[in-house]
């Protein structure tokens, strides 16, 4: 469930309140551009994705319904914008997951470094679907419902993937 003040902001934006639009941007700007940087790996591209993401968000008004948190909504938007951008610029490089800890999320994206040390190797060894849940959970600090929304999967599936990943992580470390 989204925080009540976030729901309130969305409700005001749905009424055409310019201050609410601006506040939504200010609250989530740094998170969006930071996430974009993780996917694309450079500042200029991350800034492009920032603009495109908020343009796409604003276009949803009026009538935008917030089912979980705005971050849960924004995550797939940022991710898909990054994929499009990388495809467009033909800068996608196949990443050999056996040799790097970066891995990829959609077969296209890099993920800027996972935590250094033993965790990096363990995370890279997880199945892709578990790895993404772990990153959303620990790197982006999202709740179960937010992860479910971000990945468009049921909460039970998130629990299952997280549970399996945790068993590996805690057993190995």
């Amino acid at each position: 469930m989204a925080p009540s003040d976030e729901r309130e902001l969305v409700a005001r934006a749905n009424q055409g309140d310019a201050a609410a639009f601006e506040e939504l941007y200010r609250r989530h700007r740094d998170w969006v551009v930071g996430l974009a940087w993780r996917f694309v790996g450079n500042r200029d591209d991350a800034l492009d994705v920032l603009q495109e993401t908020f343009a796409a968000l604003f276009d949803r008004f009026p009538g935008f319904a917030l089912t979980s948190s705005l971050r849960g909504y924004l995550y797939p938007v940022v991710k898909h914008r990054c994929i499009s951008l990388l495809r467009k610029r033909r800068r996608v490089v196949a990443i050999d997951e056996a040799r790097t800890a970066r891995g990829d999320l959609a077969g296209e994206l890099a993920w800027q470094p996972d935590p250094p040390g033993e965790f990096a190797e363990i995370i890279s060894a997880l199945p892709a679907e578990q790895r993404e849940v772990v990153r959303l959970r620990f790197a982006l600090d999202l709740k179960l419902e937010e992860i479910a929304q971000a990945l468009a999967i049921p909460t039970g599936t998130v629990k299952s993937r997280l549970h399996n990943a945790l068993k590996v992580l805690l057993k190995v470390v």
Partner: peptide, 26 residues
Amino acid sequence: LAMPLAAIEVPAECDRAILALARRRA
């Protein structure tokens, strides 16, 4: 495991462009 997102500096002109878009949409 926590890896806070990098702090990326957003140029003022980028802010202005997005905020102008926000006001137009409003």
